[in-house]
Amino acid sequence: MPGVPDKVVLHPLVLLSVVDHYNRVAKDTKKRVIGVLLGETYKGQVDVTNSFAVPFEEDDKDPSIWFLDHSYLEIMFRMFKKVNAREHVIGWYSTGPRLREADLSMHALMANYCSNPVLVICEVEPKEVGLPFTAYTAIDEVREDGTEKSRQIFITIPTEVGQTEAEEIGVEHLLRNVKDATISTLASDVSAKLQALKGLKGRLGDVQEYLGAVLEGRLPVNNDIMTYLQDIFNLLPNMNVEALSTSLAVKGNDMMAAIYLASLIRSTLALHKLIDNKEARMWAEKERADKAKAAADKAAKAEKDKAADGKEGAAADKDQDKQADGAAKPTSNGNA
């Protein structure tokens, strides 16, 4: 289809901005937030590199009544344009978590700022494993019999998460700060495998639902999807071969044993560091106590020496007074 993007690549900064916007404005409510997506389009790929929030209100009872601040949008875009001239308005985002009746009219409004806008619905509280966002674009649907005039509908676009080298370094730095090195990775590995299996189960359920709808005639046969499914089945290993199943089991057990051993070694090293830290702290406290005791003894000795010097001075003054009194008395002799 002409004008329809082949893929939408969302950068981590955009996801963080959308979640922050939702937490500030609509957390613990049924409202949604809306903003503008910035980026560039090259060879059918839409790179969403930045975004900003836009004031938005809608009537809960009548979805056709809504308000979006155009002036704020234009002022913010002019300021972002001064920072990065390569970023253009490429669409808008919503926290849905699904499409609504007023989305087509808002999409038409966004078409005033870019030729073919995309809509990205982000799930700030995802309940399923997978990417927490879905991209859409609007196309004109025309009935073949010509009974109705053309109308716009949303179609989905393939999505993925992409990042530049600078963003990758920043995300890795944040994850490094979050990760606790004292915690074993065995539990995290098992949790990751469990989440992956849940995601696989969900995808297989979607495939089963689609094939069931095709068999019942509710959906037409899509040859591209059937080709992909056939490729998947061709790539699956034949688990009926005993040698293959045995080798996979041995390989899995070896990996689990290596992970378990590494976790034990890490726990032992952590305990060793804890004991070394405690011993170093005890020696430091003992050294401080010895220094404090030496300083107190030195102060007491100085005070004692000072008191002794004061007594000797007082005795010397007393002797001088006696000598002075003896010299002042008149001597008695025969001439008195």
Rank of each mutant, 00 (worst) to 15 (best):
Y113E: 02
I65M: 06
V89F: 04
T156H: 03
I65L: 09
A292F: 04
K193F: 09
I155W: 00
N23H: 11
W66V: 01
V14R: 03
V171S: 00
T159L: 04
T185Q: 13
I139D: 00
T182C: 07
R176D: 08
L15V: 09
L215G: 04
P158Q: 11
A111W: 02
K82Y: 08
A308F: 08
K27N: 12
Q320R: 15
K278L: 14
I169L: 12
S245D: 05
I225E: 05
L235N: 12
A258E: 11
S64P: 02
A102P: 04
E303D: 09
G146P: 06
R32E: 11
T95P: 01
H173W: 05
H88M: 10
L274N: 12
E148F: 13
G334M: 15
R86H: 04
E57T: 10
M106Q: 10
G96Q: 06
E58A: 09
Y93D: 01
T29Y: 00
S51T: 13
D60Q: 11
M255E: 10
K201F: 03
K291I: 03
K43T: 11
L175W: 03
V124Q: 03
N50D: 10
V241E: 13
A294K: 15
T246S: 14
P55D: 02
V118E: 01
R98I: 06
G326N: 10
A249M: 09
T246P: 02
I232P: 01
L68S: 04
N253M: 15
Q152F: 10
S184A: 14
L37H: 09
A280R: 13
W66P: 00
L73W: 05
R86G: 05
M76K: 11
K7E: 15
E312L: 12
K301A: 11
T331A: 10
F77S: 05
G313R: 12
T331G: 07
G310T: 13
G252C: 01
V46N: 03
S64C: 08
T159H: 03
G146E: 01
Q230V: 09
I139V: 15
E40P: 00
D206R: 14
E128S: 13
V89G: 02
D254E: 13
E172T: 06
